Amino acid sequence: MSNTMTGPVEAYFEGRNARDFARALSGFSDNAVVRDESRTHRGPQEIRAWMMETIAAYDDRSDLLNVEMEDNTVIATAEVSGNFPGSPITLRYRFMTERGMITSLEIAP
């Protein structure tokens, strides 16, 4: 099991947990797409709004359990706790990267 990573994915988790939206967004490309809870968010403005909305609703924090990297894909598994039924839960984050930037993120159980 690995739980080390660098770059934009690390910035996402660290920034989100610290409520530092600029850091959390710093690794996303201008045309990045996030899919979470059956919704799609495109571009930095929508992704920032999604982060702010979900943190306000759930006050969630992620503790990384495992990170797998292969080519341009990073799959991170995290225990997510917060103000929601069933907390904590384990979620899988699938990041696609291109030229060192996150181009897509899909979050699923």
Rank of each mutant, 00 (worst) to 15 (best):
E46K: 11
Q45A: 07
R23G: 00
D20Y: 06
D36F: 15
E68I: 06
S29A: 12
I55F: 09
G86P: 14
Y58D: 05
E53M: 14
G86I: 06
I102T: 07
V9Q: 15
A11D: 04
N66C: 10
Y58W: 13
R99S: 10
I55S: 05
I89M: 11
R42Q: 08
D30A: 13
S62L: 07
S81A: 10
L64T: 15
Y93Q: 03
T73C: 11
E98F: 04
S26F: 10
E79H: 01
S104C: 10
T103A: 09
V9Y: 08
R16E: 09
V80A: 01
L65S: 08
N17C: 08
D20W: 07
E98A: 04
V74Q: 11
R42H: 11
V80D: 01
P88C: 03
I102G: 03
T73V: 11
F13G: 02
R16D: 06
S38T: 08
E53C: 05
G100A: 08
S29F: 10
V74F: 11
A32W: 11
R19Q: 15
S81D: 07
D20F: 08
N72R: 14
F13P: 04
A11I: 01
I102M: 07
G43M: 10
A57M: 13
D60K: 00
V34S: 02
R92E: 13
P85K: 13
S38K: 13
R23A: 05
Y58F: 15
N66P: 01
M69Y: 05
R35F: 14
A24R: 02
S81E: 07
R42D: 02
L64N: 15
P44E: 05
F28K: 05
D71P: 03
P88E: 06
D59P: 01
V33M: 06
S62V: 04
M101R: 12
Y58R: 13
A11F: 01
E98W: 04
R35Q: 12
F28E: 02
A11H: 08
Y58E: 09
E53D: 14
F13M: 02
R35P: 02
V9E: 15
I75R: 15
I75T: 14
T54H: 10
N72K: 11
V67A: 09
L65P: 09
F21I: 14
V80F: 00
Q45R: 09
R99L: 09
S62K: 09
W50A: 03
S104E: 14
P44Y: 04
G100W: 14
T54E: 06
E37G: 07
